[in-house]
């Protein structure tokens, strides 16, 4: 399957099943579009007519262009066949390995953000903190069910996890003590609203957390509209200096500033630029997940505005990179040559199978966004997964699970999309959240365009980027190395 688009002056052709990205000129762009539909002589005649007056477009030149297209097709870099569908339905027979847990260490929060799916951190239940005993049992559950997997991931989540901070520290120490005897490598992540960050939190996080996710919605007036305490006071002034201090002390370890945009700030790129201007360089901004009647909810009328915003963001990122003050955007950090293998692309995030959420009292759910929904209570950390019917539903939820996605060029990038978003939008985890699809596809187009722009900038400096990790030069399109 081939996807063609024009963005920011670049004509781009993506071959979905090989992951090949081609930068073409307008003539080749048209030739590729016509290639599957018409015989060569018709394509040549049509393009000669279209480009009348262009001295570079001759019959011989067009024949050469069509030869190049044929060579790329033969090399599996254009219209490469989709040979992965059968693999997708073999997933039910794969092992029941668990490799990651989202630990809800606090079902309570010191902020009262109106758009939060966790509803004051309580997930429609009672306030609760996870005990160290439950935390330790959750870690043993993870170790027991991880099979031969070495890398295990634990997200400290809530609510606000810093409201159970001593337990977090004690549990990390426990896991470190178990690493040597089990041969496992724990990677910890913390997601926080920042209100309780102090020097102890900064020191510990920068020593032990592989990643920290810091919640900031951007401009003060945007952030303080929704991210308020129980007295209705905004939290921007309290958290920004703390985030700046944490990030400054963090060196080159991973973090990102994570914002949410809503109907009230569809000009969200201004919030991203504000984050960058505050000195943060690893940024993320996500569409709100809410009921359609919520005043925060994004509307159909918002969609074209949002799509344009993603393009504005990509162009500004190019400008700032060229000026020597780059920042990254979570959804634009695509790795075209070393991205995930086909199994990962089909399976996606692994929610409900290799990744689960644990409540303060040890119940298991497919992910943090299903916590509190009795239909998706999978079991607990003592007995394991007992609701195998619900787990099977997730096991079958992959890039090939939906007939609507069969002809979508982005399916091996979105892996079928977020099950929680599909569930909340359609009532089924196998539904299609079309609004999210449109945003995702635009983000992918922008991400690929950014890589093309980067490639062109490097080429202008005489630097050639490897086409494929460990691969041979493919300048001649047949994939074979030349003698030089």
């Amino acid at each position: 399957m081939v996807h063609q688009y024009k963005l920011n002056g670049y004509d781009i052709v993506l071959d979905t099943c090989s992951g090949s990205v081609h930068l073409v000129d307008d003539v080749a762009y048209d030739a590729i579009a016509l290639y599957p539909e018409k015989p060569r002589e018709e394509i040549v005649a049509e393009l000669l007519q279209k480009y009348t007056g262009r001295p570079d477009v001759t019959a011989a030149d067009l024949e050469q262009c069509l030869d190049d297209i044929a060579a790329l097709k033969a090399a599996g870099k254009l219209w490469s066949p989709d040979v992965y569908e059968e693999m997708a339905f073999d997933f039910k027979n794969r092992s029941n390995v668990v490799k990651a847990l989202c630990l809800h260490v606090a079902h309570t929060c010191n902020l009262n953000c109106s758009y939060c799916f966790a509803a004051q951190g309580r997930y429609q239940g009672e306030r609760a903190l996870m005990s160290l005993e439950v935390g330790k049992r959750a870690m043993e559950f993870l170790i027991e069910h991880s099979g031969t997997r070495r890398n295990l991931e634990v997200d400290f989540f809530g609510g606000e996890p810093l409201m159970n901070w001593q337990m977090v520290k004690d549990l990390v120490a426990y896991c470190r003590s178990r690493e040597k005897e089990t041969g496992k490598n724990f990677r910890f992540t913390l997601t926080t609203n920042g209100m309780l960050i102090d020097d102890d939190v900064i020191d510990f996080c920068n020593r032990e957390m592989s990643n920290v996710v810091l919640s900031l919605d951007g401009r003060r007036e945007v952030h303080d509209r929704l991210r308020v305490d129980y007295a209705g006071r905004g939290s921007y002034d309290a958290i920004v200096p703390k985030f700046q201090k944490l990030v400054k002390a963090r060196g080159d370890k991973n973090y990102y500033i994570r914002g949410t945009y809503t109907h009230a700030n569809t000009d969200f790129t201004n919030d991203i630029f504000h984050m960058a201007d505050l000195g943060f360089t690893e940024l993320s901004m996500e569409p709100v997940v809410s009921k359609p009647d919520d005043p925060c909810a994004l509307t159909q009328e918002d969609l074209p505005v949002l799509l344009e915003q993603y393009e504005i963001l990509a162009k500004e990122m190019i400008r700032r990179r060229r000026e020597g003050r780059p920042f990254t955007f979570y959804h634009y950090m695509i790795d075209l040559t070393g991205g995930p293998c086909i199994y990962k692309r089909i399976a996606g995030c692994g929610s409900g199978t290799e990744y689960m959420a644990v409540t303060p009292w040890g119940d298991l759910y497919p992910c943090h966004q299903f916590v509190g929904d009795p239909k998706y209570l999978l079991g607990d950390i003592w007995k394991g997964v007992t609701n195998t019917a619900a787990q099977d539903e997730f096991r079958h939820c992959n890039a090939y699970a939906r007939p609507e996605c069969k002809d979508c060029w982005a399916k091996l990038y979105c892996s079928g999309g977020c099950a929680a978003n599909a569930y909340h939008a359609t009532g089924s985890i196998s539904g299609v959240y079309e609004y999210g699809c449109e945003l995702f596809k635009k983000r992918m187009e922008c991400a690929i365009m950014l890589k093309v722009a980067e490639n062109q900038d490097l080429a202008a400096q005489g630097v050639e980027v490897p086409l494929e990790l460990g691969g041979a030069c493919t300048a001649c399109a047949d994939g074979e190395g030349c003698a030089e």
Partner: peptide, 10 residues
């Protein structure tokens, strides 16, 4: 040259 392959084996 009208086609430049920027990147590519699943």
């Amino acid at each position: 040259e009208r086609i430049k392959t920027i990147a590519t084996d699943l």
